[in-house]
């Protein structure tokens, strides 16, 4: 595990909190997975189990004022940006107490006030939005950076190309973070790219690009912090490619025929939570007992979120036409 200089606000206490946050992300999605299997939630969902470090690690190094744009696989980003798991779970249950009053569901959770400009159901759809938000930061001199999440699949969308170029020529404060989880639905990066690293594309836009181990919390934090401060200083955008893996299928209906069980087992050995725990214990800031206690706390918080969601009311039909226009 890498160990560079982290910002001062990443204290030992914060690191321990992040360990719990990773469990919160994992349990949230594990729980959602169970509900879908039982048919207790309708629609669809995309789970980020196995990718907790890219969400928790990169958002941990942001300042409060910084913003994110997220993806269809966005529950982790949302939790890391400080969202309430109660309101998130309620949204997945379609309840009026949810983040979007039950109108958005899994793919559209946003908390604009808190700087989460929203998950997005369109692959690559959020990338231009991030550039626009960064433009506001520049024009209003607000000093915030936008962290723009997207997957490997989105890197083959036109919006990726157009947005990276635009952000580059205008030196906008945005960090593009590609969570390369190896598959765009069923399409393997091995088949859909003729390059080994998506980050190599940064060169084409005249911006720095970096490949990192997305399952290594420390490496994620270090790389994103460096990139965010580079962007904040006015030097322009950065492209980071975090190599990771989604343990679950693409969405609820995925039989995972496009990959082997052996490959899945190999990646499970690189479990980001386990690796972070080992690091924290080695560093002497976490004990086995404390780790267990935090894991249990996270588990209970998700159980509480479920209870909150279950007892929350359905939206009234009167709200159907509300909020189409401001």
């Amino acid at each position: 595990m890498s160990n560079h200089a982290l910002p001062a606000f990443i204290t030992d206490e914060k690191l321990v909190e992040l360990y719990k946050q990773m469990w919160l992300i994992r349990y949230f999605d594990e729980k959602v997975d169970q509900f879908f299997a039982k048919g207790m939630i309708h629609g669809t969902t995309h789970l980020c189990v196995g990718q907790e470090a890219t969400a928790a690690g990169s958002i941990a190094v942001l300042q409060e004022k910084d913003k994110i744009t997220s993806t269809h696989r966005g529950h982790g980003h949302c939790i890391a940006k400080g969202a309430s798991v109660d309101k998130m779970m309620a949204e997945l249950f379609g309840k009026v107490t949810g983040y979007c009053k039950g109108k958005g569901g899994s793919m559209h959770i946003a908390d604009v006030e808190k700087g989460n400009l929203g998950a997005n159901g369109i692959v690559g759809g959020g990338i231009p939005l991030a550039v626009g938000a960064a433009l506001t930061s520049r024009m209003k001199n607000e000093g915030y950076v936008v962290l723009c999440f997207f997957g490997d699949g989105a890197a083959n969308e036109g919006s990726f190309h157009e947005s990276l170029n635009l952000a580059s020529i205008w030196d906008l404060p945005v960090v593009f973070i590609c969570e390369n989880n190896q598959y765009g639905m069923s399409g393997s990066v091995k088949d859909m790219f003729n390059i080994e690293h998506i980050a190599d594309r940064a060169q084409a836009y005249g911006i720095p690009g970096k490949v990192i181990d997305g399952n290594d919390m420390l490496e994620v934090m270090n790389a994103v912090y460096e990139a965010v401060e580079y962007a904040r200083s006015g030097k322009g955008p950065v492209l980071i490619e975090a190599k990771t893996y989604r343990w679950k299928g693409h969405s609820k209906s995925d039989a995972k025929k496009y990959r082997t069980r052996e490959e899945e087992q190999e990646w499970r050995k690189k479990d980001p939570i386990k690796r972070f725990k080992e690091y924290l214990m080695e560093k002497g800031v976490l004990t086995e007992e404390k780790a267990e206690q935090l894991r249990e706390e996270a588990f209970r918080e998700i159980e509480d979120a479920v209870a909150f969601a279950e007892k929350s009311p359905e939206p009234s039909l009167d709200t159907l036409l509300e909020d189409v226009y401001a």
Partner: peptide, 11 residues
């Protein structure tokens, strides 16, 4: 998209 993102954030 840049127009949308900037509008969403106050422009």
């Amino acid at each position: 998209g840049a127009a949308v993102g900037s509008a969403l954030t106050g422009m």
